[in-house]
Design a protein around this nucleic acid. Structure first.
Lengths: 194, 194
DNA sequence: CCTACCGATCGGTAGG
DNA sequence: CCTACCGATCGGTAGG
């Protein structure tokens, strides 16, 4: 581990990481800009040198999370796996983004959405929809293979909901690794293999 | 509709209903006790005549929601329906508590849990566990009938997660009535009928 | 339940 | 990025 010299760019990155962690743990309204400044060793006014406002920091956390999640999702959805395996791979990647060590960005997106102003919602929405579109691809292929017992929209929202809710209860000790959880999700949602 | 004379008891009830609505819409930390007082036509200090603190009001909202949900859940779980029908009835009741007109209490429980102090969490937990226990009964009967392709705990948490997440996307116009959604949930989670 | 109020805190800014 | 600060707001209370 070499320590980088502090630059504007990596100070900004530190603020994003720390803000994500605190927003997740205490909520957007429950976290003060002073909490964030303290956690990175800045004075209370200094975060506003890097971000226009507290809301801007929140939106940036969400964008960062989506930007980090998209490549894996696109690779899986656009790849050549069979529908069943594609579904499980997508579930595993999704769980990783939501439960993985230091992955606080997507939970913030999920739970603090209403704290964004309408304009900032618009700013984040485009990338959010690009992510949802990957799930739609996977669900459409399942449907085409006769593996979906209900309509694609309802199925997708239920699956994603079940995965997202895992942040509320998952403990790696009790529930096993993420890959094992993904297998259970697949067993639960898809009809048994013939 | 007859208008009741204002008593301490029904003023308290008004505060609970209004607080539930505002906590759900704007979050606990995003709602001020002044917002709540305004919405029921009181002065800013008056809610504290009915509740010791803002946190006490939050915990009371949650308890109220659980107290209202428990009878239906216990009737279904303890009833004589076949496992498949019992599951669907439970899902419908759960969706009703989460999506129904004026039912803001349970969503507050789901999304503002972390805002409670440890002592207040303890106060609410007992009733919360009583509700979860009804789901456990239903899942155990499904399992005994060979209708669960994975372990009961994981299945229960996924199902409840999928149902709870519906508050984020459900629109009665686009998604149909709750009873129809419950049927889809049942089709998605349970193996096809022979 | 209202009046009148307090102490603390908060997001944000000017100037360097 | 720090210093020094402001205007606004917030949960809560004493006294009636």
């Amino acid at each position: 581990m070499t320590r980088l010299p502090p630059t504007d760019a990596n100070r900004r990155g530190e603020l994003l990481r720390v803000a994500a962690r605190l927003f997740r743990a205490k909520g957007y309204d429950g976290t003060t800009t002073r909490d964030i400044a303290d956690a990175v060793g800045m004075r209370s006014g200094s975060p506003f040198y890097h971000f226009k406002s507290k809301q801007d920091l929140l939106a940036s956390v969400m964008e960062e999370g989506l930007l980090a999640s998209l490549p894996a999702a696109e690779a899986i959805a656009g790849g050549r796996l069979a529908p069943r395996e594609k579904f499980e791979a997508m579930a595993r990647a999704h769980l990783e983004m939501v439960l993985g060590e230091g992955h606080d960005f997507i939970p913030v997106l999920l739970y603090e959405w209403r704290c964004l102003s309408p304009e900032l919602k618009e700013r984040v929405r485009a990338q959010k929809e690009r992510y949802d579109a990957q799930w739609q691809i996977v669900m459409a292929e399942l449907d085409a293979a006769g593996l979906l017992p209900t309509d694609q929209r309802a199925a997708r929202l239920m699956v994603v909901g079940a995965l997202n809710y895992s942040v509320q209860w998952y403990q790696s000790a009790a529930d096993g690794p993420v890959s094992q959880l993904a297998r259970k999700v697949s067993a639960l949602f898809l009809p048994p293999e013939p």
